[in-house]
Computed example of a mutant assay.
Amino acid sequence: MAKRILVADIGGTNTRVAIAHDTAVDTGSIQRFRNTDHPGIATVLRAYLAAHDTTPDAVCVCVAGPVRDGVGALTNLDWTMDGDLLRDATGAPEAALLNDLQAQGHAIDALDPKSVAEVTTGITAKPDASQLVIGLGTGFNAAPIHITRHGRHVAPSECGHANLPIRTEEELRLCQFVETAHGFPAIEDVLSGRGLERVYHWLAHEAGQSSEKSAKDIMDGAATDPRAQEALRVFIRILGTVAGNLSLVHLPFGGVFLVGGVARAMLPHLGQHGFTEAFRDKGRFAGFMGNFPVSVVLDDYAALTGNAAYMCDPA
């Protein structure tokens, strides 16, 4: 009999909850809750179970924030949680808590191949080759995936808060603009939805103007707004640089996977604005960068699948 797993993906604004049977998420069971309407994740899970009249065999939750020693916290909301809280809220005997990028990493090999779009080709690797997920959405983060004899291990990180790389005079000016506004030029300050907005604002500032647009308006207006096109170019070139840097750190011969709403929105523009060229622009290691294929994950519910896959991993 399939294991009935309650899975939840806690983002910065909303939480999505669903039932999975082993690694298969029942998409018809997915329900979205606005975080600010609830004092914590326990009330969300109880409300979901009351509405669906079910008792799960296990519960796994991923959170957009750091998880340390089994305790997770949201970066932008006063929610904390651990396994005991999840078990008490659901009645499930098994409980686990993951960082959201860890969940994405556990999902990779459980996804429908049709939900993965190739961006940059690479050399076919062995089945146990390391992989890397890079998340672009409300924030930025990445997590390496290692296949070991003890099972799949996805290491958490908070690399979106590392310094932005600087290669050109233009990028230095952008870093100084971000630093002036926010105190520290972090990767997430550019490579995220709000980061794209900052790039657009910076380009206006460079032109002696004060124009601002939402990330959605920038994407929607890219065909007719030259500044929106330039914002995409700057964003995508820096994304290529950062993704290439992370690939040299982790050596993901099994592939780099861009995940999240911003990554999916950027997919049609990556080729036009030189993602692959920036990704491989590593001097004498430029040829070596051809080892790493890069893809975009199209499945918006991949983190829920990853939660379920984690609970089904015999390791």
Rank of each mutant, 00 (worst) to 15 (best):
A51P: 08
L251C: 13
C60N: 02
D217L: 12
D37V: 03
G306D: 00
V63Q: 04
M219I: 15
S295R: 13
G290R: 04
G208M: 01
R68A: 12
N141H: 03
L248W: 04
C312F: 03
F253P: 01
E197Y: 09
W79P: 13
A20P: 15
V63L: 11
L270K: 03
I19G: 04
P144E: 10
A125I: 01
D82S: 04
D189Y: 10
V71A: 09
R34E: 14
H161Y: 00
M289W: 12
A51G: 12
Y301N: 14
D300S: 15
H106E: 09
A181Y: 07
A215T: 11
A103H: 02
G83V: 01
V296Q: 09
L270V: 01
E230M: 13
T124H: 15
G137N: 11
G122C: 02
I41C: 14
F257V: 02
S130N: 15
R87H: 00
M311D: 02
W202L: 05
L248R: 07
E94N: 11
F288N: 07
L174N: 04
P314N: 02
E169I: 08
G135Q: 07
T148S: 15
D109P: 12
L258H: 02
H182G: 08
L232A: 11
Y200R: 11
T224D: 15
V199N: 09
W202T: 05
P39S: 04
S130D: 15
L304V: 01
C312V: 05
L111F: 03
V71Y: 01
A110Y: 10
R4W: 06
Q102W: 14
R167T: 13
T43S: 13
E118M: 15
A302T: 00
V190A: 03
L203A: 05
A263M: 03
L239K: 04
V294W: 05
L86D: 01
A117T: 13
A143N: 11
V294Y: 08
G135C: 11
T23I: 05
Y48C: 03
H250A: 09
I236R: 02
T13P: 08
Q229Y: 05
L77Q: 10
V133A: 01
E277G: 06
G40A: 13
E212V: 11
F33A: 10
